[in-house]
Design a protein around this nucleic acid. Structure first.
Lengths: 189, 189
DNA sequence: CGGTCTCTTGACGGAGTTCAAAGCTAGTGG
DNA sequence: CCACTAGCTTTGAACTCCGTCAAGAGACCG
């Protein structure tokens, strides 16, 4: 829980009563490898803050293939915002890639917290704006670079992360086939 | 300016003094066709709310080709958030596709407004969260559908918009070549 | 009308997919 | 702690979607 409080305080100030309220309203959860936090068809009732470990958010396309949209790693929030905001059934799965510790932000308690702690409204505004910047950048990468270039670039940016997740998940995230990624790595391309 | 006030009030309540402050701090701007609001290398000092018309945000790739990342249409905000937040030079151009009326939100005045009107913090938090939902959906589309499918889908969703922008811009936004889009339309694919 | 944008068409090539099969690795239960 | 099996990675061949290039035909604006 300290991890989240620290993260929040990188952007806004929290009083002691604010922190007490957060401790009261939020809960920590240990996820086992392959445990699901959300499945297709369910409504996404929570936003998850990853303290340690790795989550993936993916959907299954019409050919039955898993397509990863996001990874959630240390100090990131992960959520199907469409489902969360509109309270609609989700198209996605959220699953722990490895054993993962998350902090659960329940939608049910959202309004209470935001009313009590206006700073949290600001925290999420700033955070969402940064997420938007990242999403814009992501779309740019997808258009600008070939699959090969995307892998090389990703590998350069997150060398340690590449080691930790299965290659086929990385391929899925990068929008290329696992076979092709294997060939890139072998230098056969 | 009413357009923006109305849009804000769809999400949060504004008092009369709040509105007065917004009238004072924001300014309206008429953009001519092809007028630039931002160019590559400049710092993005403003967020633009499109009242009427159409903006495009694009970059020029290493082959000198314009790649459109976003369109901004009625009641949407458009901004290079990366440049805006970090006050870094932008990689993008923002240009009016047609004559366009925008409301300019200057970063310089951001803190003043947000401190005076906490509801605006909430407004942008909600809005950014919706933008994130849209960005997630966009990435899903890019992975899930072929160029042909993306066009057909877009055409179905925004039939009127498709009529209004040049085809080569639409092709760029959809991530396909103008030639290929032409062939899709001709049914030669 | 003249020139600059914009759209169309066809031929060719290449990046990446799909399928199939085999080799490797690691987790789990006996 | 070993063996077995499911999960993961590698390889190659055939194929496909779509980009690139080039050239021409409209269309719009001054």
């Amino acid at each position: 829980m300290e991890a989240l409080i620290n993260h929040i305080q990188r952007f806004v100030k929290l009083s002691e009563p604010d922190k007490d309220l957060l401790y009261e309203m939020l809960r920590s959860k240990e996820c086992k490898r392959r445990e699901f936090l959300l499945k297709e068809g369910q409504i996404c009732h929570s936003n998850y803050f990853v303290v340690k470990g790795c989550l993936r958010m993916y959907y299954v396309n019409d050919k039955g293939v898993e397509q990863i949209v996001y990874f959630g790693i240390d100090n990131w929030w992960l959520c199907d915002y469409r489902s969360y905001d509109m309270q609609q059934p989700s198209q996605y799965y959220i699953q722990a890639v490895a054993a993962t510790e998350v902090i659960v932000w329940d939608k049910q308690k959202e309004e209470i917290i935001l009313q009590q702690i206006p700073a949290m409204e600001r925290y999420f505004r700033i955070l969402m704006q940064r997420n938007m910047a990242a999403a814009q950048q992501r779309i740019k990468y997808i258009n600008e670079f070939s699959g090969t270039e995307r892998y090389l670039h990703f590998n350069e940016m997150f060398p340690d992360f590449v080691q930790k997740v299965p290659q086929y998940m990385l391929a899925s995230y990068l929008g290329i086939s696992a076979e092709f990624l294997s060939k890139i790595r072998a230098g056969k391309v």
